[in-house]
């Protein structure tokens, strides 16, 4: 039976697949066969994760979307999927390695911190809005994480060539982030009576959103200043981490409406 007790078995298989795909993708000689092999191994990794998520859904009698550990599963899923899409579309071979390492790190957190799976689910989370809200957020986080990784590469190599992929990733990520945030606002109205309450989590979501919009607008007005654009993306990703985890560190979250995480 699939459950958190057996997660480490799946995690090892997934890690093996995505890490092998990442390492093989770095080989200097990239024949068509090697390319196909990388794609197939990566897909196998994603399929194993999908099987685990489906199995866990049956075990829990609901979609695994309600605890931080469950949400991380979706993040790993979208990150691996986007890594593959970027590899196929733009042939950034190093991308798979970075997405693999990030995914493995998140799976490790889930294995090392089993207490995050036993959290009590508050009644406010039992809503039809929860699934689209969280899935869209996770999908957008994965896009924005990819844009961050590409920005780091661009900054290290001091090249503007990565800019157009950053634009693709950031604009898609921002679009999903916007939809998720607004769906959250509609849900908040239904659950708590207000669209926006200036909660610690909401403030950081707004800061993150503004940073990414700043990036998109800065790119529009200063397309040649690519270093500044990369730096804005790094700062925006930092804001995103604050929004996701950072706020949990501060004691004021105890009085927050988002303190179930």
């Amino acid at each position: 039976m699939i459950g958190w007790d057996s997660f480490y078995v799946f995690a090892i298989c997934i890690a093996q697949c995505i890490l092998s795909a990442a390492i093989i993708s770095l080989f200097k000689q990239q024949t068509k066969t090697i390319h196909m092999f990388v794609v197939i191994i990566q897909i196998i990794g994603i399929v194993i994760l999908s099987i685990y998520i489906i199995g866990l859904s049956f075990r829990l009698h609901r979609l695994p979307l309600q605890t931080m550990g469950e949400i991380r599963l979706w993040y790993v899923f979208f990150l691996s999927l986007l890594g593959l899409i970027i590899y196929l579309r733009w042939r950034y071979r190093w991308m798979l390695l970075f997405t693999a390492l990030m995914s493995i790190m998140f799976m490790l957190i889930n294995i090392l911190r089993p207490e995050i799976h036993n959290q009590h689910i508050m009644p406010a989370l039992r809503s039809v809005w929860f699934v689209p809200h969280v899935i869209l957020y996770m999908f957008s986080y994965a896009f924005l994480a990819c844009s961050f990784l590409i920005a780091v590469a661009g900054l290290v190599k001091q090249q503007s060539a990565y800019m157009h992929v950053c634009d693709h990733m950031a604009s898609r990520g921002v679009a999903l982030f916007t939809i998720a945030m607004l769906l959250g606002a509609i849900w908040a109205k239904e659950a708590w009576g207000h669209y926006w309450t200036w909660d610690a989590k909401e403030i950081w979501a707004a800061i993150t959103w503004m940073f990414y919009l700043l990036y998109l607008h800065f790119r529009n007005f200063n397309p040649k200043h690519y270093i500044v654009s990369y730096v804005i993306l790094l700062l925006a990703f930092f804001a995103l981490q604050m929004c996701w985890y950072g706020v949990n560190i501060f004691p004021s979250l105890k009085g927050s409406l988002h303190n179930y995480i």
Binding site: S171, R172, V174, T178, K189, Y195
Partner: peptide, 22 residues
């Protein structure tokens, strides 16, 4: 307010599919 939010959501959906252009 809900109507305004729906306008923003529809804009974001289009942005996802079309991306942004310099």
């Amino acid at each position: 307010i809900l109507f305004s939010i729906l306008i923003m959501i529809s804009g974001a959906v289009v942005m996802f599919f079309k991306g942004t252009k310099i």
